[in-house]
């Protein structure tokens, strides 16, 4: 396969597709788009060597706004698609992205097993604690008392899902939190996550200004984690279970060996791939 010898130095904006996002004005996902492009520019990755796989939902529209290879198709299934891509094409930088509903509910089981498999890729979940695309229903990370949806007039009354704790318990190798209110800090977290071998999980706080307007205040609640990332899962467990959900930065860096099975077959040309599907 033809490959660029050297990657010319690209700026963050060069990683954008030019398509205008349809997110609501004020949505946190705009900043996440900025952060991702800044991270890719900082890592000087050739756009053709990056693949971004997403699920379904507002935040999952991300791939089309980037000038990298993208896949935006199956609800809750970003991780299995990304896993398949990475193990068959280990030379690519594989990112997966989506929202809290897509990642923790529809794809909840995939999330656990992606953490467990530890394939070298980065999963960015833009968490706004609501299903925005379907007009504002409670998601797995919604506070049990949130009663603003007609579907849950008294709140869900079910305790929220703690993605970072689940990620650690399931074996994720890198766990971090970032916020759309600080795109530069978020870019750093994404860079570190991509560089870290194995499955890296970035919990991205990204407000929904339409259905959770109170989340505009998140920017005042977030703060850098008071201590450096730990390598000890027991210490991480205590920290993740007691933090206030607003600690930012890398919180856990494990050293498990990434899973990368031996390649058994490959094709060089799309036509060879297509031939396999002929009747």
């Amino acid at each position: 396969m033809e490959r660029a010898e050297t990657s010319p130095s690209l700026k963050a904006r060069d990683y954008k597709s030019g398509l205008k996002p349809v997110w609501c004005p004020g949505c946190g996902d705009f900043s996440v788009l900025q952060a991702v492009t800044k991270a890719l520019a900082e890592l000087a990755l050739a756009p053709e060597d990056v693949a971004l796989v997403s699920g379904i939902g507002c935040s999952s529209r991300l791939p089309a706004y980037l000038d990298v290879y993208g896949f935006h198709a199956v609800h809750g299934r970003a991780l299995p698609v990304a896993t398949g891509l990475k193990i068959s094409r280990p030379e690519l930088t594989v990112l997966a992205a989506g929202g809290d509903g897509d990642g923790f509910s529809i794809g909840g089981n995939h999330f656990m097993h992606a953490c467990r498999r530890n394939v070298d890729m980065t999963y960015i979940v833009m968490d706004n604690q609501v299903y925005g695309m379907t007009k504002g229903q409670a998601s797995p990370t919604t506070d049990p008392e949130w009663d603003k949806s007609k579907l849950t007039p008294d709140g869900t009354q079910i305790s929220a899902y703690y993605p970072l704790v689940i990620a650690l318990a399931s074996g994720a190798n890198f766990i971090a939190r970032a916020s759309s209110s600080d795109p530069n800090g978020a870019a750093k977290v994404i860079v570190d996550a991509i560089r870290h071998p194995g499955f890296s999980f970035v919990h991205m706080l990204s407000p929904c200004v339409t259905f959770r307007p109170e989340q505009r205040l998140w920017k005042k609640s977030v703060h850098p984690a008071p201590v450096a990332a730990t390598k000890d899962p027991a210490v991480a467990a205590r920290r993740l279970m007691t933090d206030d959900n607003f600690y930012l930065g890398t919180l856990y860096e494990g050293s498990r060996k990434p899973y990368q099975p031996e390649l058994i077959a490959s094709v060089d040309l799309p036509s060879e791939l297509e031939a396999g599907f002929l009747l």
Binding site: A12, C24, P25, G26, F30, K38, E42, D182, P183, N184, G185, A187, K188, V209, R216, K219
Partner: peptide, 26 residues
């Protein structure tokens, strides 16, 4: 200079507009 290494308060660009008030009816 990496995006996060600029000497800005809280790492935030002082010239970037505060988009808090952004609203479709602004």
């Amino acid at each position: 200079i990496s995006p996060w290494d600029h000497h800005w308060e809280h790492g935030l660009n002082p010239q970037a507009p505060d988009t808090d008030v952004t609203h479709y009816m602004m």
